[in-house]
């Protein structure tokens, strides 16, 4: 079974973002970029499926600027066999990404597609679900466990009240939640080997997909800053403040 895994280049998890002075967007100049953490989990799951002998080939795909090839090389270093880069400098929204991935699914015919549940830049949490709808494949979102069993996959999902397990027919789309696995770090020899693995470069036009969106970004602002308050010296003072000053007790 072939596994397709989608990755996204985003601002590094630990970087504190700045809004541009003209409020047009977040300022990404000279900011450290990395693979989206949920995508790392997706790559790890795909590689583990290969190590278990369930998957025969792992193909990583990304949509983004030329620099996003760094994240594909990371996926290759972590164990993906080959990569597809759909290169564009446009701001590509979830729907367009899902349309592009649907074309790749059509071409590659994977048994399983694994994506992160959300990217930590736009926090949309849409692409996997949209891909499932467009391809007509079943979806298991927010997965904390993925168990392939013959022509089915059981997906345990993190839902608001606890956990839900569903069974999907294969091929299927899975999106990862945090507890699915702990991604490994790439080893130096694997990083070297990854440079020689095949990486195809395409454009949205190659797939006949229009990436323009009908949603426009009018303005980006910093949220209202919360000011720090006071330190209290004791539990008694805390209770007094909460009762008499904040009036929340």
């Amino acid at each position: 079974m072939k596994v397709l895994v989608a990755v996204k280049r985003v601002i590094d998890y630990n970087v504190k973002i700045r809004v541009k002075a003209d409020h047009s967007d977040v300022d990404l100049t000279n900011v450290k970029m990395a693979m989206n953490p949920f995508c790392e989990i997706a790559v790890e799951e795909a590689v583990r499926l290969k190590e278990k002998g369930v998957a025969t080939e792992v193909v990583a795909v990304t949509v983004g600027p030329k620099a996003a090839q760094e994240q594909l090389r990371t996926a290759l270093a972590l164990g993906a066999d080959r990569a597809i880069h759909i290169e564009t400098d446009e701001r590509v929204e979830s729907l367009a990404v899902a349309k592009l991935l649907a074309k790749v699914v059509d071409e590659e015919q994977p048994g399983l597609v694994i994506l992160g549940k959300q990217a930590i830049d736009t926090d949309n949490n849409q692409t996997g679900q949209m891909l499932a709808a467009l391809t007509g494949l079943p979806q298991g979102t927010f997965a904390s466990e993925v168990a392939v069993d013959g022509d089915k996959v059981n997906v345990t999902r993190e839902i608001d009240g606890g956990l839900q397990t569903i069974a999907l027919t294969l091929p299927a789309i899975v999106t990862t939640d945090l507890r699915l696995n702990e991604p490994r770090y790439a080893k130096l020899p694997d990083i070297m080997k990854a440079k020689k693995k095949p990486l195809d470069v395409k454009t949205p036009a190659d797939y006949g997909v229009e990436v323009a969106s009908k949603v426009s970004l009018l303005k980006v602002e910093s949220p209202a800053e919360r000011k720090g308050g006071v330190k209290v010296a004791s539990v008694d003072e805390l209770i007094d403040k909460l009762k008499n000053e904040a009036k929340v007790l």
């Binding site: 830049d121 949603v215 426009s216 970004l217 009018l218 949220p223």
Partner: peptide
């Protein structure tokens, strides 16, 4: 398209939503 996690309504087509873990608020139309 879908607009996720909308936390404010400016008009019938313009909305506020958090991005980057709520460290920025986007106005989208």
């Amino acid at each position: 398209s879908q607009l996720s996690d909308v936390l404010g309504v400016e008009s019938a087509d313009t909305f506020l939503r958090p991005i980057y873990a709520g460290n920025a608020i986007a106005t989208v139309k």
